[in-house]
């Protein structure tokens, strides 16, 4: 099972690198020029540089925090003159990072929350009562039991998630 999942990520990444033409990147900088994250924290995130690092030194890049700073806005994806699917490539590289055991703190906590309650954000009883007071239907601390069960079954097959509990 583990190999199968792993091979999907690797295969998709390879497909992305070849099919999505990562090797045709000539470092023009359009992605960085369009990136909202690079605009405000250029010292911490530069998509052009990150893309080059993924291509040239994948194993070292997997451990970088920079990989997790893409805000997934698709601006670079839209404008890249070579049609490189930057957003997808970052996503697939994250898959490999997780497989290698690199778990960034906050995303991991959010995923744990999803496994627990079916949502990324917690709804405490107090929050639920607030909803009621404002005229909204109550939604409970977790999603429906059926949904939770289904989430568990699907994610059980992913060793990554099982490891996180």
């Amino acid at each position: 099972m583990k190999t199968e999942i792993t091979s999907i990520s690797k295969e998709l990444l390879q497909k992305s690198i070849d099919a999505e033409k990562l090797r045709y990147c000539y470092g023009c900088g359009t992605c960085t020029a369009s990136c909202p994250v690079a605009k405000v924290i250029p010292e911490s995130f530069n998509p052009r540089g990150l893309l080059q690092k993924i291509f040239f030194d994948l194993s070292k890049t997997l451990a970088e925090d920079e990989l997790w700073l893409c805000a997934w806005c698709y601006s670079c994806y839209e404008r890249c003159p070579q049609g490189i699917k930057t957003t997808e490539i970052f996503l697939l590289t994250r898959n490999l990072a997780v497989e290698k055991g690199y778990f960034p703190k906050q995303p991991t906590n959010l995923v744990k929350q999803i496994l627990k309650s079916g949502r990324t954000l917690e709804v405490t009883p107090a929050r639920d009562r607030k909803r009621e007071a404002l005229g909204l239907p109550k939604i409970g601390e977790t999603v429906s039991e059926k949904a939770l069960r289904e989430i568990k079954i699907i994610t059980e097959k992913s060793p990554t998630w099982r490891v996180r509990g």
């Binding site: 992605c31 960085t32 990136c35 605009k39 250029p42």
Partner: peptide, 27 residues
């Protein structure tokens, strides 16, 4: 650096170019 996009100032019709200077890595 290939500019990402251009915004036109509606009052003056000046153009504001967003770019990364890839040699200095400044946005």
């Amino acid at each position: 650096g290939r500019p990402g996009g251009i915004w036109e100032d509606p009052k003056t019709r000046d153009l504001i170019i967003s770019f990364e200077n890839t040699l200095t890595q400044r946005v």
